[in-house]
Amino acid sequence: MVDGITPERVREIVAMADRPVLRNLLITRGYHRLTLAMAQVLDQGDFTWPIFATWASKQAGQFIREEELGAGMTTLLAARMPAVLDSVTLRAPIRRALTQIARHVITGNTLVFEELGVAFATFAGTFAEPAARTEERLADVVALFSEGPSLADVVTMADDGTLERRSQGGQTMIREALAYYFMALHERSAAARAELVLLANGLCGLHEQTRLQPYIGGALAAPLAGLAGDEGTIGAALATVMRRAATELMMTMALPGQVLRLGSDLPAPPGQPLWPEALARLEHPRLLQLTEELGAYAARERGLGLVDRLEDWLRPGEPEVQGSGADDWSRLGDRMRYIFEYFRSRQRDASLLVSPFSPAQEQDLLAGRVPTGPL
């Protein structure tokens, strides 16, 4: 096991409710360590869901660290409503809105790690040794997760602004994903193995995005709830601008060497084809079923509108996944269409294996300190 990322360590990190900034950084680091642990287990160059969670969690940190969120929001507001930045009466409601955005992101970031961090830590620890890769051990791992459909939490806001949530549904998609990762351990065909990993990654992504629905929606609605009703016409306009600004920030993904704009069609990895060779053509029946459900495969291969087809014709040297850009990040279907194609295109992108933190920042995190300087 890489660096002691065990289910127990996952639970310790989740329990750090009084230190949300440090917890997010440790979650991000934890996903990176789980990426390396899973890469050791699979040992075939197909990267599993934690590699994508690493960079999503790092992006979430910008919302959790309210100072950075506020700075980014200020820049966007200055370009659209500069007068509000000088308004003393609007400072408090703006701060409340930023806090509510952060609370939603904090809760979502933590609950996903609590579920899937445990799943990957258990899988990597159980199957680290080839001799342990038996159907009996798989059954033990799968049994840790409950049967039932993936459902969004029921979330309410207490009088003090804190979030109260009630989980519902089950974890059948996690159980299914773990079984496909296990099948990939024993698959000799590179193409078949890559499809199994992509299928498992897609199921993990759909489960966690379903669970995240009220937190993403709540974060984007926070400015409307906190400003539109209290500050009259100016407040309503400001709330709308803040929601747009939060959406722009949320729909940006900083990767090593590239920044993705999630509202635009997904570009190929720098210097690489759009799809890894092993995933250029998808054939696994369950995988094709999933892509149909998500609208991902259909969006790429058929049913494109005139605008997408013109873009494809006018920009032949810049391959993109036509029709993948999300129109509204608060809609699960829009998110998953983009996310699935992102998973498919980057499943063998080794540039994502780099640590999200510098060596000095790693040392601070190991010592239980929040690193200073840019994160």
Rank of each mutant, 00 (worst) to 15 (best):
P267G: 05
L249C: 05
T252M: 09
D265S: 12
L262G: 03
G295S: 04
G263R: 12
P276H: 07
D265E: 10
A299P: 01
A246E: 01
L262C: 07
E248G: 04
L287N: 04
A245W: 00
L288K: 12
Y297W: 09
L287M: 08
H284Q: 15
L288G: 11
P285T: 08
G295Q: 06
P285Y: 07
P270V: 01
A298Y: 12
M253F: 12
Y297E: 15
A268P: 00
P270G: 01
L287D: 02
T291G: 15
G303H: 13
Q272F: 01
A278L: 08
H284G: 07
L279M: 07
Q258T: 04
A298M: 08
R261V: 06
L288N: 15
Q272I: 00
P256A: 03
A298R: 14
D265R: 08
A278D: 12
L282M: 06
W275T: 05
E293C: 06
P267T: 02
M250E: 07
A298F: 10
A268F: 07
Q258V: 06
G263W: 03
G303L: 11
Y297L: 12
M250R: 13
M251L: 09
A280I: 08
A280N: 13
H284R: 15
L294H: 00
T291S: 15
A298V: 13
Y297P: 01
V259S: 02
P267H: 03
E277L: 12
G295N: 04
R243L: 07
R302A: 12
Q272C: 04
V259G: 00
R261D: 12
A298D: 13
L294E: 04
R244H: 11
R281K: 15
D265V: 08
L282Q: 07
L294M: 11
R243T: 15
L249S: 07
T291D: 13
R300K: 10
T247K: 09
M253G: 06
G263T: 13
L294R: 00
